[in-house]
Design a binder for these strands. Structure first.
Lengths: 126, 126
DNA sequence: ATCATTATCGTACATTTGTACAATACGTCA
DNA sequence: TGACGTATTGTACAAATGTACGATAATGAT
């Protein structure tokens, strides 16, 4: 069967889920600590978002001592694909090319990344 | 002065705004007609979204006969930049490279677009 | 002028989202 | 084993979102 379509992620949920991916797994506290300074939200808020992510099927938790350790319950690659797909649909009508060109144009890419991208596209059949 | 930060776009609003960009300008009816079949929503709903986009500062309207003609009130390029930026922040922590690689990997690019991208990256300084 | 047509406006409303306090439970150390 | 410090739960709530009905107003044809 195809992986069932999970409910869409809200912006705030997306960011929290990203942090869990970054950590591999983590407690509320650990997620809080990873929050970028530009994005200060209360412990309790993070907790709610983690709960909601679990209810939606993106996370599971295991109790370790007093704390809950949340970990991914859906394949990151899949989630990314769907999320990016939805985004491209809404903003670009489903055509990824304008987005790629936009990113290429507006991102300050360091030499290293530039090389990776150059190589990637150089390798593609013409 | 820097262009003032408009309130964030909701997903549904984003799609409607895209259609206005596509049309250049248009009435509620015209926007409805451009809705992809995958996305059937009522006339009145489109109307509400257009009104909200206007209130937020993304659109203006001019009355032409009985109908309202909505047109962009913010520079598309700016809006795109901010919207994509927010998205990259939330899903990739601000690093555009994974998104670019993801897109390159998962999009079925036709020869033409591939060439554009190849050329783009080939041209960049090493 | 009147009627049918078609647009807009005002309003509504259930959900979701973002944010968080207060109360309770669980472990740990003395 | 009792107190202390965290962690979790339950609950709350205003604002935003998605969706749309009913009433009203403007237009064009007769």
């Amino acid at each position: 069967m195809s992986p069932k379509r999970l409910p869409a992620l809200s912006p705030a949920e997306t960011e929290i889920l990203r942090l869990i991916w970054l950590l591999g797994k983590g407690t509320v506290q650990q997620v809080c600590d990873k929050l970028p300074r530009r994005r200060r939200i209360a412990y309790a808020t993070v907790q709610t978002l983690l709960r909601r992510l679990e209810k939606k099927g993106y996370l599971t938790h295991a109790s370790q001592g007093k704390a809950h350790v949340f970990s991914p319950a859906a394949k990151r690659e899949e989630v990314i694909k769907r999320t990016v797909g939805d985004f491209v649909d809404r903003l670009f009508g489903g055509d990824p090319v304008p987005l790629m060109l936009h990113l290429a144009d507006h991102s300050k890419l360091d030499a290293d990344n530039l090389k990776r991208l150059k190589k990637f596209f150089a390798k593609e059949k013409p």
